[in-house]
């Protein structure tokens, strides 16, 4: 460990070697004790513990509002969403996660109007890159703060984002 002369080295260096040897021993012991003092501090100070008991703290746990968990489409109380079916999200997505299936509604004026039939979202393909949210011109979709996505069958991860029977909100073009 020491870089001094070997034990059987020249006699003249013997004394210096001995001094160095003792110094090495003492500095080693000191550095060990310093480390042990630090770990001993943490052993006795349980307030420093930082771990969370995850499944138990589900109620109190808050994810930040920007957390990218999965893509959802908010609906208001009248079961209306803001999606026009413009497919901007579908184009923005790098993985083909979103598929927009469109249909044609008849407006009260008797005109045909493009609307979404289904907005299919493949959670299993999604990388939560947020590009679809940024691309959406009408703020129809957003990221939800969920993260417990495990299911037993991957087909359950393919979701339809718009509620059955939902309509587009008035005034959203």
């Amino acid at each position: 460990m020491s870089k001094g002369l070997p034990l059987w080295g020249r006699f003249g260096g013997g004394f210096m070697f001995l001094i160095n040897y003792i110094k090495t021993v003492f500095s080693t012991v000191k550095s060990m004790l310093v480390g042990m003092r630090r770990t001993g501090y943490y052993f006795t100070h349980h307030k420093e513990i930082i771990t969370e008991e995850y499944p138990d703290n589900r109620e109190t746990m808050h994810l930040p509002e920007r957390f990218k968990g999965e893509v959802v489409m908010p609906h208001d109380e009248k079961n209306e969403h803001r999606c026009t079916g413009c497919t901007a999200c579908e184009l923005a997505c790098p993985n083909g996660t979103i598929k927009v299936v469109t249909k044609f509604d008849i407006t009260p004026e008797g005109k045909k109007k493009k609307a979404i039939d289904k907005l299919v979202y493949h959670l299993e393909l999604c990388t939560m890159c947020n590009l679809c949210i940024v691309a959406c011109p009408s703020d129809a979709i957003k990221m939800a703060q969920t993260f417990e996505h495990s299911v037993f069958d991957r087909s359950q991860l393919t979701k339809v984002l718009n509620n059955p029977g939902s309509k587009i909100m008035d005034g959203v073009e």
């Binding site: 042990m36 770990t39 001993g40």
Partner: peptide
């Protein structure tokens, strides 16, 4: 146990050095 959770592991030659050059003479 306190040792175990504080210190890094020695290398094999250091381990033998520690024994033969330090612990045994001391």
């Amino acid at each position: 146990m306190w040792f175990r959770w504080t210190f890094p592991r020695l290398r094999i030659d250091q381990l033998l050095n520690l024994e033969w050059k330090y612990l045994l003479p001391i």
